[in-house]
Amino acid sequence: MGKLEGKVAIITGAARGNGEGAARVMAKEGATTVLTDILDQVHETAKSICEDGYKAVSFKMDVTKPAEIKDVVKKVLAQLGKIDILVNNAGIVRGFRLVDMPDEERDRQFDVNIKGAFNCAKAVLPGMIEQRYGKIINVSSVTGPMVADIGHCAYAATKAALWGFTRALALEVAEYGINVNAICPGYILTPWIKISASKRNPANPDAVLNQWAKHIPMGRLGTIEEFGQLVAFLASDESKYITGTPVIIDGGNTIPESGIGYQEA
C-alpha cells in the first residue's frame, strides 16, 4: 500500500520538470493528484499518469490569479471532496543583473514564486483547517537561502522569502494538524535546466550539463523522480513531526566551501 493512499494532492507547475516528478511519485504512492499549470501540456502529463494506472486530473491554472485558483479549488472540492496536500512548485527564473533588470521582470518573479505560493496556500487552507489535516510543501531552492548566482537577484530573493513564509505559516497552522515545509533542490535535470544549457551552448547543451554535473559532488544532476520521492515523504504521515523546516536535496552541492575550490582541490 502506498504511503499516500486516499489523499488528494494539488501540485502547481506540474506539466513538466519537478512538478511532474512530484505528481508521478505521489500518484504511485496512492494519491489522487491534481496537476495544475499555465501550460496546456499539463493535460498530457495527467493523462500519462492515468495511463500508468494511477489517479490524476488536470486544470490550467495561473498561480498569480487568485480567481483562477479559487475556481480550481472549488472544482476539486466538488469532484474529490477534499484537499490534503498542496505542493507550491510553480516557479520561474530569468537572469538579469540588477542594474539591467526591468522592474516588470522583478515583479513577475515575485508574483509567481512567492505571491503564487501565498495565493495557493490561502485558497486551500480553509478546507485544511476545517478537516484538521493538511500538508503544504513549498518548493524553494538552494539558490537564495544557501548560495546564489550572478543574475539571480530576483530569483534568489523569492526563494529565500519562501523560507520565511514556510516558517511563519507552519507556526500559524500547527494547531490544526497542518504541516508546512520547504524543499530546496539543487540542479535537477528538468526541461528548464536543459533549456538554459541550450542557451549557453546551442551547439552542444550536453557539454554544459556535463560541466554542471562535474561541479556537483555526487557527479550528476538529480532526477525529477528523486525530487518527487522527497515530496512524497513530506506529504505523507511518515513526516508528521516535521514542520517549519527547509530540506535540502542537491547531491551535496552546497556543502563544499565553493564549487570551484572543490574542483581544484
Partner: peptide, 11 residues
C-alpha cells in the same frame, strides 16, 4: 541524491 544534508524533525 541526498547527501550532506541536515534533516530537522522538531515539531
Amino acid at each position: 541524491w541526498v547527501t550532506g544534508s541536515e534533516f530537522v524533525i522538531d515539531g
